[in-house]
Amino acid sequence: MPERSYRFSSAAYSKILSHASKYSCSTVGGVLVGRSEGKGGEVTYTDAFPLFHTSILPPLLKVAFSLIEQYCKQEGVTLCGYYQANADATTTMNVVSKAIADRLTANCNFAAVFMLDAEKVPEGQPALKCYAGSRGDWSSVSASRVHIGEDVIDSAGEYISSERYVDIVDFDNHFECPELDWTNPEFTPTTTATTADEGESARRRRPRGSREGVTEGMGEGGQEGGGNDGHSDSTRALVD
């Protein structure tokens, strides 16, 4: 199997982080689309489509896949990745992720799976653990082959610190209310955050990924350690 490397665009990474932050108390998952540069070349993920935050069952998956594939056809990209953020913050692939991954590789030989490592998010480090392989046989890929640029991490952090992550829409939301757009066009980084509250400039000055809205008047305080909610760690650390 060729040793591929994987690169994430801002849009993809921001959507992953926003989805995970919005539903920090449940397991969330979604698919990644992108293209690969020739045989064995780097895979660039141009976009991510959040799928679910509730229990995942075949019918929803099927419909979501067919809709995403249709969309991909129009954009000229392939469905070639799956991400998941577990509620208990573990980064091992579970049954569901394996099943979905197997399905992806049936159609795309460079598909990979990414599990979110919640502890790395507040540190501003690349927070995705990659697994590559094929049907039934998934092995972890070294972090050096996963390229998530500083600017990508920064712009993803912006979405969280400005609390715009709540606007992310996944397929669960979409099926409840079809008006909600699962392509999340406002999460592409071409739209810059132009909210003009007083807090905004102050927020920019604070360390990446912090949130002020909740804590005015409470002063600085210690972080809470431990806890049983996995990637809520990522938003937990964002609250000072």
Binding site: M218, G222, E224, G227
Partner: peptide, 10 residues
């Protein structure tokens, strides 16, 4: 606050 780990509010 327990979910978010926010000590002061707890």
């Amino acid at each position: 606050a327990c979910d978010m780990g926010h000590r002061q509010w707890i």
